[in-house]
Nucleic acid binder design. Structure first.
Length: 321
DNA sequence: CGGCTTTGACCCGCGC
DNA sequence: GCGCGGGTCAAAGCCG
């Protein structure tokens, strides 16, 4: 059983899957990178705004290691519904290309700057200080007084309706909760309309870290798990990680890339720390032949290919049997 | 016992 | 105003 993580390009619930189907129907060769892969927030940040975040660890540290078997990492994408990004930028279309990169259908479609899915998602404020919780606490104090305050709070919330940036992945896996190196606490589960599969809500357990993620299984393809990360980790991956993984590219690495935005190489981590390399569970490495062939073709005569060979362990380029 | 999951209730925004 | 759907809370229970 393989686990595939696919770009959601502005994944918006069901629509994302349509996109997925579109890609497949067009028989596009998707960029694959197998094995556990970290989608480092710095990568995102670098695409969105140079100074967006400069945390050492990176905002989103996605290191999928879903199962004992291999995973195929597709394009991560950003749901830039957040004005936070807008404030920093920026020509989203172009930058998104860099993020999603995948050339092919994804990159063409992309444009990833999508509008917010709408309601319900407005109250993603930091920590427990969401408007909702505030209101609830106040309501617990009882009285009409709270009601009036409620209105005030609501207005305030409306004023600072800042949505966190989101990145979504579609992962073909039997495992619902993909291991990504961080520790998560499940704080809710909801049935999804038109889907027999529930959506789970997780929050980073690190104190003061307000990163959340939603995990749901596609109703159209039960083998696909949709993971949506929201906000950015402001801390490194816990050292007590339960699984091995490697990091993705740092922002600088990404920015300095000589690859064109349309290159299918966007998903391939381009730099690793030694530490990270040592953590790579080689047994799960599994490079998609098509992808490799494509990459070889693209970089065979270029410095990039050599660079990649240097940066990646040989196992990355191991030909699949 | 601490951390995590489960789950029903609640709140909010939006569309009609 | 009402209903719906998404998101969150928090008590209870589970587990190592």
């Amino acid at each position: 059983m393989s686990n595939e993580t696919k770009d959601l390009n502005n994944y918006h619930y069901t629509s994302s899957y349509n996109h997925y189907n579109t890609i497949n129907s067009q028989n596009m060769s998707l960029p694959y990178v197998s094995g556990p892969c970290t989608y480092n927030a710095n990568m995102i940040s670098s695409q969105i705004g140079s100074d967006l975040h400069s945390s050492s660890q990176g905002a989103f540290g996605f290191c999928f290691e879903p199962s004992p078997s291999s995973s195929e990492f597709f394009n991560p994408s950003i749901d830039q519904e957040n004005s936070f990004y807008n404030a920093y930028n920026y020509n989203t279309s172009l930058k998104s290309h860099e993020v999603v990169g995948g050339g092919g259908a994804i990159a063409e479609n992309e444009t990833r700057v999508s509008a917010s899915p709408s309601s319900g998602e407005a109250d993603h404020h930091h920590g427990e200080n969401s408007g909702k919780s505030l209101l609830k606490r106040e309501a617990d104090d009882g009285g009409d007084k709270q009601r009036s305050q409620k209105v005030i709070k609501t207005k305030k919330n409306q004023e600072k309706k800042i949505r966190e940036p989101r990145v979504s992945f579609m992962t073909k896996t039997e495992v619902d909760h993909l291991e990504d190196g961080y520790r998560w606490r499940k704080y809710g589960q909801k049935a999804v309309k038109n889907s027999p599969y529930p959506r789970s809500y997780y929050r980073c357990t690190t104190q003061k870290c307000n990163v959340k993620k939603r995990v749901e299984r596609s109703y159209q393809d039960p083998t696909v798990v949709i993971t949506t990360y929201e906000s950015q980790h402001d801390h490194p991956i816990p050292t007590t990680r339960r699984t091995a993984m490697f990091s993705g590219p740092a922002a600088s690495d990404y920015k300095s890339s000589s690859l064109s935005p349309g290159s299918n190489f966007i998903n391939t981590p381009r730099s690793f720390s030694h530490d990270d390399l040592f953590r790579v569970p080689y047994s799960s490495m599994n490079v998609n032949p098509n992808y490799q062939q494509q990459q070889n073709h693209e970089f065979q005569h270029g410095s990039d290919y050599e660079l990649l060979k240097e940066m990646f362990p040989s196992v990355f380029f191991k030909q699949e049997p």
